[in-house]
Write a protein that binds this DNA or RNA. Structure first.
Lengths: 348, 348
DNA sequence: AGATTGATTGCACAGCTGTGCATGACAATT
DNA sequence: AATTGTCATGCACAGCTGTGCAATCAATCT
């Protein structure tokens, strides 16, 4: 009947002990005798008691909450990364607070403010970027920041990145080895750091090899944009025969337009490479050669770093760990979307 | 330097007012003069103050947290639903607590316990199911429960369901109208309520029409299972020419096996119908006829119900609202995966 | 036996906020 | 001018937990 939930006081009364004993019962390493613990546990189960982590967090300055800040979360790559992070966070005994952002201005700020208001132990940005001043406020208050595939660095935050430029370079190598003559670059117009890096690597390698290429860059990172990019690139007179797409979603769109609207055979007349290794890239309809991000490992390392930072909170003001960065290498996944040819031993 | 975050006391000191004034400043409808509010807002911005919702929730018995409990969240349909719910929750001024479950026993219980420990205002189950006793404990403590596409009902919880059986029936009608002679049902072996209902509708309609059909049911609800189902169904001597798949993911697997491994033309030799209307169903490679769930509307109505329940918390003990259910009708989306034919006016 | 050690338990406080109650100031009304 | 009403503000308490400190108690040692 009472609208309020059962508290430690109720358990204490039922078990005939002090409220402090109940607290110690659920605090690892606290001093409590086995028999009273047994009594308390029994009473707690009977009442359905769960320690109130709000009150606990209030006094311990550690809520066990980790904010995951993300946009476009229904996208294959994003949802995969989100799942991995949630799993890792839970494995570490914490819980994920999910905050969705959009493209609008100040959306990331708004999200971070939400995280602060719940006194989150950490915030992990999968997209967007908080203003520098607000980020510093977070750090000063003891909140950890992790930035995944973000560009500008915030001192004290962990940067989780991939060697995107290297992937762009390898894409050129693979396409050339497949015998492609006219290369193209298909990318969205969002201008994210990681996407820009993929473009840069592609251009560098093409320039270094002394070959010409064409580009199309517009729209968001979606299947629809992929279709439009494919239409723009493949209806040209000097149609390319090897395209590197900044994203698997784009590549799927390009491939579908080629096959189903323009009647171009893949990979006989057109070789395609994507990036992300989303589930659909492995489906029979696509068989897309792409670069795989070690999503699980990225998530695990991020959370690991958070725990490590929490462990050595002994007086250092974070200045010593000003620059933390983990760099992963995207792994080439060869499938049927690239024409058969000699693939150079680019391994290392 | 101080590890602890800025509190209302700090703001009050800077603004030269009492701490209570700061609290009132951020409480809508509280009595406070415009000039002191201005002073407080200025001081708060200067210090980067955000109201501590943990402490606020502690005293108001309303944390603003809504737990989303889900498994297989990287799946297209699930991630779509998850995104819609997160969006709806945020629109209502609340924040989503994301809890991932797996197939293991007691996983749902564990998740619900997590939700309780954070004194979540509500818990929304997208998969899994808590034990009845634990669910009742939640309700008694004032936590609202929403079950999406779940079978057993928990008194007091909101049931959000679709008319799955009707979809199964319509699938038979559409396949027959397309001229299919040998129907088949492809489903996973998970035995979820909603999936069982789709199967039931299919069988009922086929039986009523007096036609025979074949079935395959095994595995999880994945693309891979779809491939295996397709292989099992389509390599038979009496190969079916019209298949209703309990899920789009399954349908994609079936279609790919048909096209790319068995050389069966879709829709000329094989008509396919799925369920969920995931993004890939609309891609050129699939063009899958399917049933669309009004995901956004489902999310909006769920959160709306939560707010309504919170509003009339005036002494009623929930017994009056024992049975709440919202039933949605899946919408048929016609695409190219079904052979051209006369589609009966099943509207209504 | 007496002293010491160790474990266990209860008291009380801190951590941060919302709000009822009382007080004070000020405007409006008779 | 006196009274009434409104509004703003501060005090103090409640809500739930973790933990330092003192006290109690049993057990062990000399």
């Amino acid at each position: 009947m009472s609208r309020t939930a059962v508290s430690a006081k109720d358990v204490a009364e039922l078990a005939g002990v002090s409220r402090a004993a109940v607290s110690r019962c659920f605090t690892p390493g606290a001093s409590i005798s086995p028999e009273t613990r047994a009594r308390i546990v029994k009473a707690a189960e009977q009442l359905g008691y769960q320690v109130n982590r709000l009150a606990s967090g209030l006094i311990r300055n550690e809520t066990g909450l980790v904010a995951l800040i993300v946009s476009d979360m229904a996208t294959p790559y994003r949802s995969h990364l989100l799942a991995a992070l949630t799993e890792a966070v839970q494995q570490a005994g914490k819980v994920a607070l999910l905050i969705k952002t959009d493209r609008s201005d100040g959306s990331a700020e708004q999200a971070l403010r939400q995280a602060i208001s719940y006194r989150t132990d950490a915030a992990i940005f999968l997209s967007g970027m908080p203003a520098r001043s607000l980020a510093e406020t977070c750090m000063r208050n003891g909140m950890r920041l992790v930035l995944i595939n973000r560009d500008e660095d915030r001192p004290g935050a962990l940067q989780v990145r991939l060697h995107d430029a290297e992937a762009g370079r390898r894409a050129v190598a693979v396409l050339r080895a497949a015998g492609c003559r006219r290369l193209a670059l298909a990318s969205s117009g969002v201008g994210t750091h990681s996407i820009s890096e993929r473009e840069r690597g592609f251009r560098e390698a093409a320039t270094a090899a002394g070959i010409d290429w064409i580009e199309e860059r517009f729209g968001s990172t979606s299947y629809q944009t992929g279709q439009d990019l494919g239409m723009a690139l493949l209806s040209r007179r000097d149609r390319p025969d090897g395209v590197f797409c900044a994203t698997d979603l784009l590549a799927c769109g390009v491939m579908d337009v080629a096959r189903w609207r323009l009647g171009i055979r893949v990979p006989d007349e057109l070789s395609l490479i994507g990036y992300d290794n989303i589930a659909q890239a492995g489906w029979d309809s696509y068989g897309l050669t792409t670069f795989s991000q070690p999503v699980d490992e990225m998530a695990a390392k991020s959370v690991e770093w958070l725990s490590a930072m929490a462990a050595n909170d002994d007086g250092d003001d974070g200045a010593g760990t000003a620059r933390a960065e983990i760099l992963f290498m995207p792994r080439l996944v060869l499938r049927g979307s690239v024409a058969q040819g000699f693939v150079p031993g680019v391994g290392r």
